[in-house]
Design a protein around this nucleic acid. Sequence first.
DNA 1: TAATACATACCGACCGGTCGGTATCCAAAA
DNA 2: TTTTGGATACCGACCGGTCGGTATGTATTA
Lengths: 202, 202
Amino acid sequence: MRGRAEETRERILAAAQECFARYGYDATGVAEICERAGVSKGAFFHHFPTKQAVFLELLERWLAGLGEKLAALRAGAPSVPDALMQMAGTAQQVFEAARGQLPIFLEFLSQAARDSRIWQATISPYRRYRAFFAGMIEAGIAEGSLRPVDPDAAANAILSLAIGLVLQATVDPDGADWGRIAQQSMGMLLEGIRRNNENLSI
Amino acid sequence: MRGRAEETRERILAAAQECFARYGYDATGVAEICERAGVSKGAFFHHFPTKQAVFLELLERWLAGLGEKLAALRAGAPSVPDALMQMAGTAQQVFEAARGQLPIFLEFLSQAARDSRIWQATISPYRRYRAFFAGMIEAGIAEGSLRPVDPDAAANAILSLAIGLVLQATVDPDGADWGRIAQQSMGMLLEGIRRNNENLSI
DNA sequence: TAATACATACCGACCGGTCGGTATCCAAAA
DNA sequence: TTTTGGATACCGACCGGTCGGTATGTATTA
């Protein structure tokens, strides 16, 4: 049996993620997490100093996973526009896989807007993502696939689009086919910054 | 002097808005609202049946105000692209005026993702906005200023952009000049859906 | 046996909401 | 004009319950 302790830790994290997504950070009690994890309160505070520490670890894992996914997609695409469209394409899977789990993203954001500790943990990867996209845009301009737009502005536009899509999919999951919407939206934005203006059917 | 009671109500609402923005809905105590409003707990529950009722009224006012603003901007613009750019242009004022108050937008969203009562109050105006933008896109296509894109998809793209911008400005207010970013982003998206493709310098 | 992993019992602070009572206001009566 | 009476506005002590976190004891592992 490998690491009983480690397994307990993971169970606590998984249970917490479910609770935070369903009820929100404040409205989730430590007792509820413990019950769902099949673990006592003592075990909880043995593995984590505070409730916030659990939240923070979930946040850090989530952000790290996101970063890896983005980098992998970029590396596997032949051109910058291709990479962007592929990222938009994976949105479908993301939305389906994370259905019901997405609200925790909102929870991450609203906590970050208030708690300086969580803000720091959030903002640093976020700025890396922004820089990552800006770098992609620059590369696209250099490779000739994009018009010479302001890379920072374009990166922000892409990020805004992505964040907005996730949020809408979170709050109104049945309001639209968000995977399709993601691709179409990215297609439109891309059309606005790509160099060759041959009309592709959207 | 009109209505002492009404003034008290307004003071409670204003105090609650500040608290919700600063601490979040759950973390805000009724006692804190009362203290900030200079009002007793009894007065609070005399004017509102529950804490949630206060939140709901703030939400409804906010959404109503947003709708009016959008309609006014649309009515005052000569063309659809003009209207969109003007809307993006007002972002600067919005961000500056609401600095520090923006987190309540996040609070609205995260509550809507959980509480069905608040979800209903949120989703109905939200869908109206979406229809409003879709109508604008159709009008733009009809007037010849926009390419024949899917109006719903374009409307969703615009909404995503707007939501994403507000969120980034909320979480990272000093991370960029969000007013400028809003204009540039909308400009790029617009470039992707407008008919005449003359290059405008961004 | 020493250290780690976990369980149970418990604490003080604080929560949203209630309640009995008081102050204020205004219309009608005197 | 003054009095009065009832409705409205407001107060603040208080309640049951829940919260995050702790203290202490027991089982498991090394």
